[in-house]
Design a protein around this nucleic acid. Sequence first.
DNA 1: TTATGGTTAAACCCATTGATTAAACCATAT
DNA 2: ATATGGTTTAATCAATGGGTTTAACCATAA
Lengths: 203, 203
Amino acid sequence: MNAKDLNTEQAILKAAKNVFVMKGMEGARMQEIADEAGINKALLHYYFRSKDKLFEAVFKEALFKLMPNLLDLMKKDLALFEKIKLFVENYINTINENPHIPAFIIHELNRNPERVAELIKSTGINPSFFVNQVYEEIEKGTIEPVNPFHLIVNMLAMCIFPFIARPILQYIIFNEDPKVYAAFIEQRKKEVSEFVINAIKKK
Amino acid sequence: MNAKDLNTEQAILKAAKNVFVMKGMEGARMQEIADEAGINKALLHYYFRSKDKLFEAVFKEALFKLMPNLLDLMKKDLALFEKIKLFVENYINTINENPHIPAFIIHELNRNPERVAELIKSTGINPSFFVNQVYEEIEKGTIEPVNPFHLIVNMLAMCIFPFIARPILQYIIFNEDPKVYAAFIEQRKKEVSEFVINAIKKK
DNA sequence: TTATGGTTAAACCCATTGATTAAACCATAT
DNA sequence: ATATGGTTTAATCAATGGGTTTAACCATAA
């Protein structure tokens, strides 16, 4: 595989990502991907065999772009509140750079739950480290006795949701002004971590 | 329109809802909807003209099923903490009865943001009553000075997210056991409202 | 220069699918 | 009984779109 190949292959992947992420597997057209990449449609099959294979390549890349951060962070040796702050800021930043990927994953998750679940499983993601850390803090009496699984889901939810519901928020709450929406997302880094810490810390 | 019509039309809508919600506009097949309804494919066009029209009917019904609750509740004359409790329980219950609709709406939201936004706008939904109530409580010093828009987004997020991410949670966290997942959702009604109230109340 | 082999593109194939048509069906009214 | 008109179906159409084929292109090596 030489440099030219890499270029074409990367161009295809990039174009395919754009189209698949916005329209999903079923809504995407091979012709549109080819146009977006500025190449002939047959080349898509030359490099990736089939639409399904191409989709899988794109999907894996998209999925793994949002996973490793999460994985590393959870296991870090940090105080719980620091970890929460870091997680929220870090994760909102990551999604902000790929704002359509969550909705893309969610759609595929509904279309093909087992396949996606298998993929995620294969990353070896495991919340037990973080869960134990939460239990320890509860023991110590520094936080309320919250269920750590609900805590994780709450944090993920608050980070991800504003991106998948963006059109609603932007058109309804923010009068269609993208600037205001962007500022809202920026605020959230602080607002959410404070919200979470306030919710659990013992006073 | 007589009783027979109503039956057929309702049968079509029900079948179309099942298929569209699970597979989206592009993934759905008119033949599959006809089969699910137990009728001839041409009848779909007889009653709804086109796939697009049928989809629109299904989508509106799905959207408005999740909206009115929200609307009425926000304007009720209730103390803030009571309102939060009621909202969370009520909304989780509503979604639990139609667990696939949020992901369905989100996908359509990405495919066609303006159209969905217009539809939602047309419901006349307006958060200002709730927003003002939050500001009043901040004045009174009963809650921390949180941004009410973030508060709304946080509550929506925590209610909706576990349903759209269900396969991940169920397969990864809950070892594929639907019973455990159902119990988790049941717990959330209490867990989330306590989480929110704890996060904002002044102590 | 020419042979080789990977890369690219144009043209084509054909299964799928949304939509239409024409005829059959059937309940109701005269 | 039969005429009417809404309902349902089978058959068909036309377009779309994923995939294939064939040949042209072009860099590299002998």
